[in-house]
Computed example of a mutant assay.
Amino acid sequence: MTPTRDGDTRRRILETLLAGDPASASEIAAELGLSAAAVRRHLDILVGEGLAEAAPAPAAGPRGRGRPAKTFRLTAEGRSRFGHGYDELAAAALAALREAGGEAAVMAFARRRAAEILDGVDAVGDGVSVPEVVDQVVGAFRRHGYAAHAHPGRAGLQLCQRHCPISEVAGDFPELCEAEQEAVSTLLGQHTQQLATIADGNGVCTVHIPLVRSRPPAPHAAPTERSGQ
């Protein structure tokens, strides 16, 4: 009985790390209603199994008194425990599409997929601010299986995804990531900067969104296609 309970607890800890930012043992304990000591014991096991790791200390930000709490995040192996869904089939289908129609066909598919994910998200405009659009984007990605969130960064916001349901496929077909970023940029009416992707072996996909509007992205038809238009 005990191993099963312990396994369930560690699964809940992994799910907590999957859903949000790197978290300390105390934060996870508060979320799950456990003692911090118990959570630290399970985190030690998860780190030993290669499913979690200590997160780097933030490079900048408010500092309190004393040493900041140690935080943890999932490793790539930890994220893989949640599955990626039909990776081989999707990769085979995209490979066939590329063979038949070339890179342009793959990009057209990727743009259509990104438009479907973000369908219903408002664009920046009268009465709609960048942070409000980013909040809607986060919600849209979460509804499609991404562990997405946004937080303040240097001179802007950072849109992060700590679990991507297509990361295995996107490693071979980067058009999928490019189209998602392109569609977000179109909604925001400005360029965004890709800082990291899970597909490239990083622990998180991160896009920097300036709060000061820059030049709008180059126009293209596919990413701006919305249902009902």
Rank of each mutant, 00 (worst) to 15 (best):
P56M: 08
D44R: 15
L74R: 02
L43E: 03
P58M: 08
R79K: 10
E99R: 10
R112A: 13
A105D: 02
G33Y: 01
A123D: 11
H208G: 04
V106T: 05
S227D: 11
L43S: 02
E168G: 11
A150G: 06
G48V: 12
R112Y: 12
I166V: 15
Q161H: 12
E225Q: 08
A92T: 08
G83C: 03
L51M: 09
Q229A: 15
R5I: 00
D135A: 10
C205Y: 04
E99S: 10
R12V: 06
M1K: 14
L89Y: 11
Q194V: 15
F141M: 07
E77D: 15
T186N: 10
A123S: 14
Q136L: 08
H151K: 13
V204R: 02
G125H: 00
H151A: 14
D6G: 07
L97F: 05
A52H: 04
P165K: 06
G78F: 03
A52E: 05
D21N: 09
Q229D: 15
A199N: 06
E27C: 10
R5G: 00
R213W: 09
L89T: 10
T4E: 14
V137R: 02
A104Q: 15
P3W: 07
V124D: 01
G120M: 02
G7F: 07
I209L: 07
L17K: 03
V121R: 03
C205L: 06
S227T: 11
S227R: 13
L32P: 01
G78S: 08
E116F: 09
R154V: 13
R81I: 00
G120Y: 01
R73T: 07
C164K: 04
L157A: 03
R11H: 13
R40V: 00
V169F: 02
R65Q: 13
N202S: 15
V169T: 07
E168A: 14
S129A: 13
R11E: 10
H151M: 12
V138T: 06
S24P: 03
E116R: 15
L195F: 08
P216L: 06
R154P: 00
S185C: 07
A59P: 08
S35H: 09
T75E: 03
L89K: 00
D119H: 12
R10Y: 03
D122E: 15
A95D: 11
L18Q: 04
Q229G: 15
A96Q: 14
A222W: 06
L211Y: 04
S26L: 14
R142C: 05
V121C: 07
